[in-house]
Design a protein around this nucleic acid. Sequence first.
DNA 1: CGAGAAACGGCACGTGTCGTGTTGACAGTG
DNA 2: CACTGTCAACACGACACGTGCCGTTTCTCG
Lengths: 196, 196
Amino acid sequence: MTSTPNPQRRSEKSHRATLAAAMDLCSEHGYGNVTVEAIAARAGVSKKTIYRWWPTKGAVVLEAMVGIAGDATQFPDTGDITADLCTQMTAVLDHVMTGPRAAVYAGIIAETQHDAALARDLRTQLLAPRIAAARDRLLVARAHGQLAADADVDMAVDLLYGPLYYRLLLHLGTYSHDRLRSHIERVLSAFAPSAA
Amino acid sequence: MTSTPNPQRRSEKSHRATLAAAMDLCSEHGYGNVTVEAIAARAGVSKKTIYRWWPTKGAVVLEAMVGIAGDATQFPDTGDITADLCTQMTAVLDHVMTGPRAAVYAGIIAETQHDAALARDLRTQLLAPRIAAARDRLLVARAHGQLAADADVDMAVDLLYGPLYYRLLLHLGTYSHDRLRSHIERVLSAFAPSAA
DNA sequence: CGAGAAACGGCACGTGTCGTGTTGACAGTG
DNA sequence: CACTGTCAACACGACACGTGCCGTTTCTCG
């Protein structure tokens, strides 16, 4: 039994300082080379305080990541499915799969391979909402006749996002904006309504 | 400078025992919960001996993994591109993305996020040859008119394999054989020669 | 406004794993 | 039959983890 701390009395200053320090240090030195002690030192916070509110380093960085990705990766609906997918996926690419944050995001995903609780949090807080949003947006497009009536939207989501994570986690290079666009167009063409 | 050991005098018995122990323990307890000491103990080998021949635990497990995946994931050429892709990708699915080995493979990939040398070895020893083989097989199919003349085979490889790794590493569930087949058919349909 | 409760920073501690150093036994080669 | 180098066994320092304690600060409630 962990003694449950009282969220109302939590120091919001320490909270924010910890998240900022975690993201900064991970961006600088890489996720795996950052220790909880280092985060505590940079944030001007006691190590004990971090462990009071988060179970592991991964949980801290995940929360920081959710904060960053949170607003920036919403799904628009302009009526043009291709344009909307480009907008959202370009944002994903730029915010979490390019530059120093790419390694941080990859580091968290790596951590989920041996931390089941973190894997669950990553799924529920970051992945699932976006997958659902993509699915919904594709369903709308299908209802509007922009995709085939029998298009498998789950498969479409896999085809759209799969290669991005594949290239990120296997170090195969990231997509340029141009390549991302032709990628999206190619996938949508596979689900286009029949010419009949 | 590491004192270079003499490969000719290497104990082949210890070599094999170490690889087997590493794969067994990782399958049982998960990649992250296995230590070099445990591998040494199980193999009846000194920890020093492991460090003499491999730089890290990841390198040991990678070599074991390469041995397992080595033969089983060759690319056939029966003339039917769909069938050949099904054959090879089903083998990949069954050998390294299903059951206990899935977590081991995911564990190695996780390790590459903070071990550049291991990332390089994974790419050169495991990924690159298979990506090249897939690419070559698709080029043959294109030359035979089974794909559009201007089909982007690199994009096709991304679309074929990306979702497999995406689902593996993000814990989104693995494909069934049936779903894998329809996945392959859908991707190929996106590169089908024009009906004209 | 004051007393109490709870989070806070600072510090020390035990634990586990890492990667290396040392030793003496053993096997292959000239 | 000596020489060279790998082998198992054990000990070691370094480092990060996660927790416990203590005195201080901050917020809440009577």
